[in-house]
């Protein structure tokens, strides 16, 4: 069960009318290493992982949904007032034809989100290393999106999200250490 707080995790300000960037932000919305993939990956893996790290996956998976909202807000702010012509100039002509100015879970190239982006191998180390890799890939993606805009307010929100990826990767690495240490201990069931 979740409790919803009707505010963003970190304030989102977009100061430059540049719908072009919305197309790149979509990568973190419905892309392979985006926030939707992250949230669903962690919240699903947690069922078959040792007890000690279930809570970590729950917490981080939940935070990824908070990030998803922030990304959605950025995209929405950039596209909600765009005319069809402006959408096309922003490279979002195909998006307009399919979704009007609506958001959709696809990547920056328009490929729809697929569950094939995420994994649950059932092996705690395999899953956690996938999670670490996902966080690092998301961090890199944020860097490349930051490179694509000169809106400092938008960059501010993206920099927050990028930093969270670093923290999450650290937590997952600690979870790997917990799992490794656990392997040598004797346990009575």
């Amino acid at each position: 069960m979740w409790i919803y707080e009707k505010k963003l995790q970190y304030p989102v300000r977009v100061s430059k009318c540049d719908p072009r960037v919305a197309r790149y932000l979509v990568e973190q919305y419905g892309g392979a290493d985006g926030e939707l993939s992250a949230a669903l990956r962690y919240l699903n893996q947690r069922y078959s992982i040792p007890n000690k790290v279930i809570g970590l996956l729950t917490d981080i998976g939940t935070e990824e949904f908070a990030h998803l909202e922030m990304i959605a807000t950025m995209i929405y702010k950039l596209t909600k007032d765009a005319t069809p012509q402006q959408m096309e100039e922003a490279g979002l002509g195909p998006n307009y034809v399919i979704h009007d100015n609506g958001l959709f879970y696809n990547n920056s190239s328009g490929v729809p989100w697929t569950a094939a982006y995420i994994q649950a191998k059932g092996d705690p180390l395999a899953d956690l290393y996938e999670d670490i890799a996902a966080e690092e890939k998301a961090r890199a993606t944020y860097q490349w999106i930051i490179d694509m805009t000169d809106d400092v307010d938008l960059q501010d929100g993206l920099k927050f999200l990028r930093e969270r990826e670093i923290v999450h990767a650290m937590r997952f690495k600690e979870a790997v250490e917990i799992i490794k240490a656990d392997q040598g201990t004797r346990k009575i069931f």
Binding site: V14, S15, K16, C17, P19, K77, K80, D81, D151
Partner: peptide, 10 residues
């Protein structure tokens, strides 16, 4: 319509 919309709002 927010006070900080980046584009001229509809």
């Amino acid at each position: 319509v927010g006070p900080f919309d980046p584009c001229p709002p509809k």
